[in-house]
Amino acid sequence: MIIYVATIVVIAVIITSLIAVFSKKLLSSIIAMGLVSLGVSGLFFFLQAPDVAITEAAIGAGLSTAIFVIALKRVKKGETKDEE
């Protein structure tokens, strides 16, 4: 039973990582990266590593996504200022 769930999660991780690589908009790439981290943390849980799963969910899916979004916001602000 668990291998089917793991298979679905793996396919979702692969699709979201392809979106993160090939997407034109940076914001959707960042969000896809967060989803990849979430799926990978689920896989760590299936593979009996709950410590790593908690760390991956807190750092990869939670904080680093927010930090990337903040950094993207700052970078775009700098761009518009230069154009003016």
Binding site: D51, A53, I54, T55, A58, I59, G62, L63, A66
Partner: peptide, 17 residues
């Protein structure tokens, strides 16, 4: 239980975020 200093600190930091 599973967990530790690094994930706990990150969870607190995301609350402050």
């Amino acid at each position: 239980t599973p967990g530790g200093g690094f994930p706990g600190g990150t969870v607190i930091a995301s609350g402050i975020l």
